[in-house]
Computed example of a mutant assay.
Amino acid sequence: MNTKSNLFKKSSFLVTLVLIILSYAPQSSRAQNTTTKNIVLVHGAFADGSGWKAVYEILTAKGYHVSIVQNPLTSLQNDIDATNSVINQQQGQVVLVGHSWGGTVITEAGVNPKVASLVYVAAFAPDRGETTGQWVAAAPPSPDAGFTAPDQFGFIYYDRSKFHGGFAADLRESEAAWMNATQVPIVGKCFETPIQEVAWKRKPSFAIVATNDKSLHPKTQREMYKRADAKITEIKGSHVIFISQPEAVAKVIMAAANIH
C-alpha cells in the first residue's frame, strides 16, 4: 500500500513538473517574439538604398531582419507600391523607417496592417492633403542647399556644387563626392503629390532631428514631428545622419522595435 502511495506521489509530482515547464514555454516564446522585428528601411531623394549599409549591419548583428527598399523616385504612388511590396514579403510585424522623402513615403505606406511603428529620420511627415513641396517651401532657406529645376524629362537633381555642404557636410569629401556622382534624381511631380493616408495618426512614431541639417531645416522637422506626436531624438549631424551617425540612428530604430 505504501509502495503504491509513493508511486502515485511521484507520478503526481512529475505531472506537475511537466505542466509547470510547459506553462513557461509559450510565455518565453511570446516574450521572444515581442523583441524580434522586421525592419524595412526606405531611402529618400537623390540617393538609393545603399546608404543604409551601416545601419543594416548594426541591426542585423543585433538579430533583426532588415530589408531595404529601392524607391524608383518616379512618383509617390510608385514609391509607396515599392515599399508595400517589401513590407508584404515580411513574416510578421514591421518597423518602417524613412529618410527625407522616404518619410513622405512611409506616411502613406505605413497604413499597411503589417506596420507596427514608424521611424522618421530627418524626414518629411506630411498630413492628409499636404505635399512634400509645401514643407520644402515652408522651411527657412539655406544658402548651402539647393535643387535644380526639372529637366526635359521632369527629373530634379540636388545642386552638385552644393551637395557636400548641403546634403552630407559631416562625411569625408571623397564619400560625399561619390554620393554626388551617383545621386538618383527624383521626378519633380513627386513633391507636388498630396498625401491621402496618414499612418502616424494610427501608429506609434519615432523621429530623429538632424540638428545640423541644411537640406531640411531642424525647425521644420520638429514642427512636423510634434504634430505627429512622435517620440523625438535629436542627433548632431547632417541630412544624411543615418550615414554619419549609424549607431545613434540604429538605437532609435531598436527602441521603436521594442515598444510592443
Rank of each mutant, 00 (worst) to 15 (best):
N180L: 05
A228L: 12
K189N: 11
R227V: 06
Q196T: 13
F206V: 08
F167M: 15
I208T: 00
R202N: 15
M179R: 02
A177W: 11
A228P: 11
D170M: 10
Q183S: 07
F163T: 06
Q221L: 07
V198D: 06
W200M: 00
A169Q: 13
A199Q: 04
T211V: 01
L216G: 07
K219H: 09
P204I: 09
F191R: 00
I186L: 09
D229P: 00
L171Q: 12
V209Q: 00
H164N: 01
I186C: 05
P218V: 05
A228K: 09
K214G: 04
E223F: 12
K214E: 03
P194M: 13
F167G: 02
K162Y: 13
R227E: 02
I186V: 14
I186F: 10
H164F: 04
F206T: 04
A168G: 05
S215I: 05
G165K: 12
Q183P: 04
W200F: 10
T220K: 06
F163L: 01
D229N: 15
N212T: 11
M224S: 03
Q196I: 10
D229Y: 11
E223T: 13
L171H: 07
I195P: 05
E192C: 05
A168S: 06
A207Q: 02
C190W: 06
Q196W: 04
A228V: 12
W178I: 08
L171N: 10
S174Y: 07
K203W: 04
M179D: 02
A199N: 03
V198Q: 08
E175Y: 04
K162H: 13
E175G: 02
Q196P: 08
A181V: 03
T182K: 10
K219E: 14
I186M: 11
K226G: 06
P218A: 01
S215Q: 05
A177H: 12
D170H: 13
D213E: 10
K201V: 10
